[in-house]
């Protein structure tokens, strides 16, 4: 794959997401070490790996919740967070530019992060109204459609404190979808849920995948990854060790550490 030239921040080629030579340090810790990959439109990528491998950090760099220290991220051809000036300098993009790009990326968090002082409906219409400038009735229409799809129509006037974890996460997914994003990022969406509530959230994510959404999911749910992912990215200690189709990854991993990781996971799940 040819490296894009420094003076063309806007590329006309197809990938929805392009990451090149991404580095990030937390103090002395090299959390992301020369990460490069592409995501095509409509692809579903599952990022898996042991804790501390940098999976969440990578996801959060994509919508600039974490700032990368080196390398470039392009979303739909536009550079995210930092762009290169005419003279080759690395320049931080403006707040409004960053926010504009964030509006077309949806993020779902491990701890849901619904706003407690607003109803479910209020949570969903907030960004469409105040970021996109939609009128209340237009925003509510979108919100109600999404709530129907999530099976939460009857909870629209409930407060987050009144919902179960699974319901909160589905509401959070609806809140992200209300902005009509082109890409959805999921940061361990089911890790905080009681086991019996995990299924309802994964169902919703499967539905999204079937509808053609481009998705990047950090998860420990191996069955889901095997079913839904077009590609598995396996990370360890800040580097991508493997990138391939799920069938290949789960049956014939190339790296020693991938094999060890899978062995630990499988041992846990097959214990009687």
């Amino acid at each position: 794959m040819t490296k894009p030239s420094a003076d063309s921040d806007k590329l006309s080629s197809a990938p929805m997401v392009r990451v090149r030579n991404l580095h990030k340090w937390f103090g002395p810790l090299h959390v992301l070490n020369d990460i490069s990959f592409d995501v095509q439109s409509g692809e579903k990528i599952c990022i898996i790996g042991p804790s501390g491998s940098g999976k969440s950090t990578l996801l959060r760099c994509l919508n600039f919740l974490e700032e990368h220290d080196a390398g470039t991220i392009w979303l739909e051809g536009a550079a995210m967070g930092f762009h290169t000036e005419e003279d080759g300098r690395r320049q931080r993009s403006s707040e409004s530019e960053i926010n504009r790009m964030r509006a077309s990326i949806g993020m779902v968090f491990q701890s849901f992060n619904l706003w407690g002082h607003m109803t479910v409906l209020g949570n969903i219409i907030e960004a469409p109204m105040h970021v996109r400038g939609l009128g209340r009735s237009a925003a509510e229409q979108i919100a109600l459609e999404l709530l129907e799809r999530m099976g939460l129509a009857d909870k629209r006037n409930a407060y987050p404190s009144q919902l179960s974890g699974g319901q909160q996460q589905r509401a959070a997914i609806a809140r992200a979808l209300a902005m009509r994003p082109k890409i959805m990022l999921f940061d361990e969406p089911t890790s905080s849920l009681d086991p019996e509530l995990v299924g309802e959230v994964l169902e919703v994510m499967r539905g999204l995948a079937e509808d053609g959404m481009t998705m990047l999911v950090v998860t420990h749910e191996m069955d889901f990854a095997a079913d839904v992912a077009d590609r598995i990215i396996f990370m360890d200690h800040g580097t991508i060790l493997e990138q391939e189709r799920p069938a290949q990854f789960f049956e014939r991993p190339k790296h020693e550490r991938a094999t060890q990781f899978l062995a630990r996971i499988l041992r846990r799940s097959t214990r009687p």
């Binding site: 919508n63 919740l65 707040e95 409004s96 926010n99 504009r100 790009m101 964030r102 509006a103 990326i105 949806g106 993020m107 968090f109 701890s111 849901f112 992060n113 619904l114 706003w115 407690g116 002082h117 907030e126 960004a127 105040h130 970021v131 959070a172 809140r175 992200a176 902005m179």
Partner: peptide, 27 residues
Amino acid sequence: IRRGQIEAGRALGMPRPLIWRRIILPQ
């Protein structure tokens, strides 16, 4: 007010003053 609530606002593209006005101050 937990950081996650502010991050959710940022992830949706909400500018800082809006996050203060609609999420932080009311709570």
